[in-house]
Simulated assay, not measured.
Amino acid sequence: MTHLRYAGAGREAQERALVQIIRSQPHLMAILEGMNALDLPDPLLASGAIYNTVWNVLTGRPVLTGINDADVVYFDDSDLSYAAEDRTIRRAAAQFAGSPIPVEVRNQARVHLWFPQRFGMAYPPLNRSAEMMLYFATRTHAVAARLEPDGGISIHAPFGLDDMFGFRVTPNPALPNRETHECKAARAKAIWPELTIVPWPTG
């Protein structure tokens, strides 16, 4: 059960462990450094590239196992056009051309404009990048990091880190995203059988 060695360790200890894991992984550090090179406003590296890497490190798997892409987000409400976002996406594509995993870049100030049409449900306008995690279908996935100007790594996790370190996939019913939670949970369980899947709440 060594993969659970940080479960229940407390927020400070878990943040230190996560920062240590991130710093040990060149693919994550290159993305964090690239985000700063692009000078993105309110940037975060979020979701699978982080929690999947943690699970791989703690279970001794190759570090890129199960990682489809890296989600890099920023918040710029000065221009909500797709054209502006696309310019940033193109700059990022050049910056991350050598990454071993694809890097997807999205402006969180625009999500409420396209989310209802794509997913069939309303989405509130956000005020900063980290707010996106409040609406993730799964609380476990709500973890993000940023490389600060002083070289420190800040961790953003509104629901804490114990689900991730406890290998629990826990739903977040903030939006009616049951299908998303269940599909992602099933995929993750097939890759990391150590996971416990918490069912979507009923009623």
Rank of each mutant, 00 (worst) to 15 (best):
S99W: 03
T53I: 08
I155V: 15
H112G: 05
M164C: 05
S99D: 14
A97S: 15
V111A: 13
R16H: 09
T88V: 15
I197D: 10
R178C: 04
V54Y: 03
F96C: 13
D162L: 00
S154Y: 06
P100C: 12
G48C: 09
R23G: 11
G66D: 05
R168L: 01
V105I: 13
I31G: 08
A49G: 14
H156C: 07
D69L: 08
Q14E: 13
A9R: 01
L45W: 03
I153H: 04
T196G: 06
E179A: 15
M1T: 11
G8L: 02
L45I: 08
R16C: 03
M1K: 07
P193G: 00
K189G: 10
V19N: 04
M121I: 15
A37L: 15
L161C: 06
N107V: 09
A190N: 07
L64E: 11
M35V: 11
D86C: 11
L161N: 02
V169S: 03
R118Y: 14
M133E: 02
S78I: 14
R23A: 09
Q20R: 15
F136D: 00
R146H: 08
F119N: 09
T196L: 09
L32C: 09
S154V: 10
N36R: 15
G48Q: 05
A70H: 01
R87G: 15
A157G: 04
A186T: 15
F159A: 01
K189N: 11
V103N: 05
Q95K: 12
T88W: 14
F159W: 04
V111T: 14
Q25A: 14
T2F: 06
Q108E: 11
D76M: 08
F119H: 13
Y6W: 10
T59P: 09
R110N: 14
H141W: 04
R146C: 03
I155Q: 05
S24W: 01
W55N: 02
A84M: 14
L38F: 14
L45M: 12
I191A: 00
A7I: 04
A94Q: 14
A49P: 03
P201Q: 11
F115S: 06
